[in-house]
C-alpha cells in the first residue's frame, strides 16, 4: 500500500510535533501515542519514515554499520562501499516470537554447512531507524522485557541456542495503543521520551476533509503522492536543517531553571523528565530554526514530555494534561 503523505494528515498537531522532534533528535527517546482506533496513529508513524533523509551505511551490511564501523558487526561486513539507504522503519507485529525479534541461530546454515551463524532479527533491522509497535499495551510481557532492555542499553545481547552475539540496536521506539484495552507497564512507559494523546476529530468539517483526502489517495495514490510531494519535501528539509542545527543549540540557564521548576510543580520525579524536557525543547527550537531555546518551546513540549511521568493518583480524576497546563499557567502565567 502506498504510504499516506505526512503533510496530508489533518490535525493531530501534537502527535506530528512529537514525531518530528523524535526524528530530529533520536536521543529524546521515542514516542508513545495513546488514542482510540482510527485516529491516524499508524498512518502518521509510517508516513514519518518516508520523510527522513537517507543514511549512509556499508553496502549490504545487515546491521547498518556506518563507514567508520566497518567490520565491527557480528557478520562482520567487509564491503568497501558505503551506500545511501532509507531510514529503517520496522513494524513489530504483536504475535512476533522472541527469535524473530532478537535474532536466532541460522538453522539452514547450521544443518547444511555445520556453521554456527546468527540470523539477525527485527532489532538489528531497526538499528538507526524506527521500531514501531502498534497496540504495544497488548504485547506479551517477555517481549516487553526484552525491548525495555535493548531500548535502554542501545545494544542487543543474545545468549541462547549456543550463540553469544552482541550488536548495536539503537532505534526510536514508537508505540501506540488504546489505554482502554490494557495498561502499559510503568517501566516501559518511562522509557518513552514523549507521550501524546490523540482523539478522533469531532467537528464535521475536519472529518469530511479527512474522508476527502483518503478517497483522493485511494483513487490515485501516485497522483496524490505527487500533489503532496512538495509539502513533504519541505518537512524533509526542515528535519535535515533541524538535525544540523541541533548541535549548535544549547539551552540557557533560564530555560533549565524553568524545566526544573515545572517538573517540581507537577511532581514528575526523577531526573529523566527534566532531561527529556530539555532535549525536546531544544529539538523543537532546532525545527523552528530559532536562534536559541526559549520558554515557548518548553511550554509547547511540556505536556508530551511530562504527561506520562506524573505520579499517578487513581482517585484523582484530573487528567495529567490538565495538571501540566495548570502548572504552566501558575508558573509562567
Amino acid at each position: 500500500m502506498a504510504r499516506f503523505p505526512f503533510s496530508a494528515i489533518v490535525g493531530q498537531d501534537e502527535m506530528k510535533q512529537a514525531l518530528l522532534i523524535a526524528a530530529v533528535d533520536p536521543s529524546v527517546g521515542g514516542v508513545m501515542v495513546f488514542g482510540d482506533r482510527g485516529t491516524g496513529k499508524s498512518t502518521a508513524a509510517r508516513a514519518l519514515a518516508g520523510l527522513l533523509p537517507q543514511i549512509s551505511a556499508i553496502a549490504d551490511c545487515r546491521y547498518g554499520c556506518t563507514g567508520e564501523q566497518r567490520g565491527t558487526c557480528p557478520d562482520p561486513c567487509t564491503s568497501g562501499r558505503v551506500r545511501k539507504r532509507d531510514v529503517p522503519f520496522v513494524d513489530l507485529p504483536l504475535g512476533a516470537t522472541e527469535d524473530r525479534v532478537i535474532g536466532s541461530l541460522d538453522l539452514e546454515r547450521a544443518l547444511r554447512a555445520g556453521e554456527k551463524a546468527f540470523e539477525p532479527g527485527l532489532l538489528a533491522k531497526a538499528h538507526r531507524g524506527f521500531l514501531y509497535i502498534d497496540e504495544i499495551n497488548l504485547l506479551e510481557d517477555h517481549l516487553v522485557d526484552l525491548l525495555l532492555d535493548v531500548a535502554a542499553s542501545g545494544e542487543n545481547v543474545v545468549e541462547r541456542e549456543g550463540l553469544s552475539v552482541r550488536h548495536r540496536a539503537k532505534f526510536v521506539l514508537i508505540g501506540s495503543g488504546n489505554p482502554e484495552e490494557g495498561e502499559l507497564r510503568p517501566q516501559l512507559l518511562d522509557r518513552f521520551g514523549l507521550s501524546v494523546e490523540v482523539r478522533t476529530p469531532e467537528d464535521i468539517e475536519t472529518r469530511v476533509e479527512i474522508m476527502r483526502l483518503v478517497a483522493a489517495n485511494e483513487r490515485d495514490p501516485a497522483g496524490f503522492a505527487e500533489k503532496w510531494a512538495g509539502e513533504d519535501e519541505k518537512t524533509l528539509k526542515q528535519i535535515a536543517r533541524g538535525k544540523a542545527k541541533l548541535a549548535k543549540l544549547e539551552p540557557g540557564e533560564d530555560v533549565l531553571t524553568d524545566a526544573a521548576q515545572l517538573c517540581l510543580a507537577v511532581g514528575a520525579d526523577g531526573l529523566r523528565g527534566e532531561l527529556t524536557l530539555m532535549r525536546a525543547s531544544r529539538a523543537l527550537a532546532a525545527l523552528d530554526g530559532a536562534r536559541s531555546v526559549k520558554r515557548e518551546h518548553l511550554i509547547a513540549v511540556a505536556p508530551s514530555a511530562l504527561r506520562h511521568r506524573l505520579r499517578r493518583d487513581v482517585l484523582d480524576e484530573t487528567g495529567s494534561t490538565a495538571r501540566i497546563t495548570r502548572a504552566i499557567d501558575e508558573l509562567f502565567g
Binding site: 547450521a110 555445520g114 554456527k116 517477555h142 526484552l146 545481547v157 545468549e159 541462547r160 549456543g162 550463540l163
Partner: peptide
C-alpha cells in the same frame, strides 16, 4: 558481561556446540 533475560540454560552453563559437532 551482560546477562540478558532470555538466556537459556545452554548458554548459561555451556553444553554441546551443535554446529561444530555436526561438522566434526
Amino acid at each position: 558481561r551482560k546477562l540478558p533475560g532470555h538466556i537459556d540454560d545452554e548458554r548459561l552453563l555451556g553444553g554441546i556446540d551443535i554446529a561444530a559437532s555436526l561438522s566434526a
